[in-house]
């Protein structure tokens, strides 16, 4: 397959991803459901942080709550990408296609982290002034690429969790476990260093290193190491997703069954 041919096919999958995204989330739903949810969720965590531990807690929860709003967008829809094929019975077709099923899954996920990051930008602008943190709005907007990185690493983790659990029809449990795992151990609301076991779990989850980098950057401290760690965690989960897809595809071929059955 020539590179032009490959690019054409990838572009086709990317267009399909957009159609799939817009079918589940038309602009009216993005504006009336996804955006208000991102804003109010972040507002809730920010106010709660202030109630429980004062101004410092409010600032900590604002920065972390924004990352949690990314996860909320990704949890349902990225997990749905392979689930949709399972329920539609189209895995067999994907397996026999020119592009590897893993490539198809990954490319079909692209609209979700992009949308989640865009919603986060709006949330920063809305929640900052509402919670008396207008001074954080511009600095946080300048760190939006780090939120995009966290959205990508989280999407990779959700995809891997969904693929791992799909055979047992437990994708809902697996993807939500990722979400609550991030809320508990991602340094979103609970500052690192309070519960050692939680800290240990957090090191292999997305968001945690990204938030450490972002907070270090906001305070003017070095952040490159944590940023690299965040990217590494995302790559690790992407590798898990790849291995699961390959194993399932081979198993399906060998046993003559539908993938992930």
């Amino acid at each position: 397959m020539s590179s032009t041919d490959l690019l054409g096919r990838l572009r086709g999958v990317g267009r399909f991803a957009l159609v799939e995204f817009l079918t589940m989330n038309p602009p009216s739903i993005v504006a009336t459901a996804l955006l208000p949810r991102a804003v109010v969720q972040t507002l809730f965590f920010t106010v709660l942080g202030g109630v429980l531990s004062g101004a410092d807690g409010r600032r900590f929860a604002f920065v972390g709550g924004l990352a949690m709003s990314l996860v909320a967008v990704l949890i349902g829809d990225v997990g749905e990408v392979p689930v949709a094929d399972k329920w539609a019975g189209t895995f067999g077709r994907l397996r026999t296609g020119v592009l590897h099923p893993f490539v198809l899954f990954v490319v079909r996920c692209w609209p979700y982290p992009v949308t989640a990051t865009a919603l986060t930008a709006v949330t920063i602008v809305c929640v900052g002034p509402l919670t008396g943190q207008s001074g954080l709005v511009l600095p946080l907007l300048s760190w939006l690429p780090v939120y995009l990185l966290m959205a990508l690493t989280s999407a990779a983790t959700v995809l891997a969790a969904a693929l791992l659990a799909l055979g047992r029809r437990a994708e809902l449990l697996a993807t939500n476990a990722v979400s609550f795992g991030i809320l508990l151990a991602g340094g979103v609301f609970l500052p690192p260093g309070r519960v050692p076991v939680v800290d240990a779990v957090g090191t292999v989850l997305p968001i945690r290193h990204g938030l450490l980098a972002l907070r270090a950057g906001l305070d003017g401290r070095p952040f490159a190491g944590e940023l690299a760690a965040e990217a590494l965690v995302g790559a690790g989960w992407l590798l898990v997703a790849f291995v699961v897809t390959v194993v399932q595809a081979r198993r399906a071929h060998r046993l003559g069954i539908d993938d992930f059955a």
Binding site: G49, S53, G54, L172, A177, F180, L183, L184, L190, R194
Partner: peptide
């Protein structure tokens, strides 16, 4: 079912852990 495990078991445990450990 998986939904009940998430809503009824995981969620209260995580909410309690983060709020109790964050409170000053």
């Amino acid at each position: 079912n998986p939904g009940m495990i998430v809503l009824g078991i995981i969620q209260p445990a995580v909410f309690l852990a983060i709020t109790l450990r964050t409170a000053e």
